[in-house]
Write a protein that binds this DNA or RNA. Sequence first.
DNA 1: CAAAACCCTGAAGCCACGGTTGAGGCTGGG
DNA 2: CCCAGCCTCAACCGTGGCTTCAGGGTTTTG
Lengths: 249, 249
Amino acid sequence: MEASVPTPTPFDRETADGAPSNRKALTIGAVAKILGREFEDISISKIRYLEDQKLLAPRRTPGGYRLYSQADVERLRSILRMQRDEFLPLRVIRQELAAGARQERGGEAASLRRAASVEGGKGTRLTLQELVDDTGVGADLIKDLEDWRLVQPVAVDGVKVYDDTDREIVKASSELARFGVRGRNLKVLRTAADREAVLLEAVVGPGLRSTNQNARQEAIENLESLAAACSNLTHMLLVRDLRKLTGED
Amino acid sequence: MEASVPTPTPFDRETADGAPSNRKALTIGAVAKILGREFEDISISKIRYLEDQKLLAPRRTPGGYRLYSQADVERLRSILRMQRDEFLPLRVIRQELAAGARQERGGEAASLRRAASVEGGKGTRLTLQELVDDTGVGADLIKDLEDWRLVQPVAVDGVKVYDDTDREIVKASSELARFGVRGRNLKVLRTAADREAVLLEAVVGPGLRSTNQNARQEAIENLESLAAACSNLTHMLLVRDLRKLTGED
DNA sequence: CAAAACCCTGAAGCCACGGTTGAGGCTGGG
DNA sequence: CCCAGCCTCAACCGTGGCTTCAGGGTTTTG
């Protein structure tokens, strides 16, 4: 989410005049703090390192302090995204940046990869309105999905908030809704998923509850593989059933 | 070491009847040589390393030699491609593979999509032996899958033959078998798929039975979309369930 | 103006990833 | 029975991507 923090940082005194602060150059510490919201593994030393690797070239004060323009920050942001979402090595990112400000290339696939991850980011919190805007789905359908518990918002401060699995679920459901498949029919899918979850829980459960952090991590990764394989298998089984349907007529 | 060598292969693997040799299982050296054409940085040790990292799991001879099925070679090929072309780290490739390359960027997803197509080309007919060589799965697991009716061969002239959905199902199951999920547990997946099929049948059934050829064709295409959306939705529901599992600790 | 907060460079260190190498020993096809 | 080919296990290695530390300069703030 692009909340683009125009927020006055604690030590922020450069915004004393109500002027648009986002025009001002930032010190390295300020940049780290801002980007820290989106990327938890950012650090001052890392930013310096990236400069060392010729990925950035901020202006300097006469005294030698780095000064980051708004553009620099954006550049850095996209570097970090490519790292995190597309797993690109710096060497490649450098080229990618040099080759014009190309953007949004494999972005779709990458975001999918993240969205489908079991290891939940917990990051996203959407209001109903945002969910509607984001998916282009009517509030009535969402209501329907909630009634049948396909979507399970959480109440925070009396407001329902949705997360990113909810969003993906809504998107997928809207596809089905086009064909008239709605809440009551979807219930069968939910129970199917619930049962699969129980099955997988039985397999990795022990490792998951292990106190050993390594074992736990491994269990989570196995869980990802299992979930994928499971969905895959179910899909193939469905395809076979459907072929029988279309074949024998 | 694996004590249970799954090779009571009933039939001699000699292709006395001049069968296409590319159906046969290969030794590691042969695999390296073949893939060496496309990937210069392949080596025997690298292939072994990838196995060590759980990216491959070829069958073994009773003596311990690795035997690579056609499917294994393809899997390896796509591993190498993801490394070379998409710079993905092995950790990510592992997941991507488990997902059965459900979405393949960059174009050619043809082979899988064909296999996943509802519109069945009844073409493929595999014997048990071919199925084993092709998928690299032990005959015992296949037997297990048959017992639980995940795989449904047809008897022709007293010989059981499998089709390509069976093959894909076996492949997906082998992924799960690695974690000890076998026949009895898989039954829940089959019934889930069956129910989804019933659901979709209700939606497109009328069109499917239409005498109007156009309407029929359209129904089939809708069915594909529906199947995809359905699987997708079930997967997301599963992911959400699993996140709850990993989250609350 | 001085202390406090922040920033600078360069060199060294660290850890994970993705393999390779080598010793010592089986396998299996001709 | 021979010998190329394969096996495991453990040690080793280069690179990438940072972090840490020492020693010292710059800016802000009160």
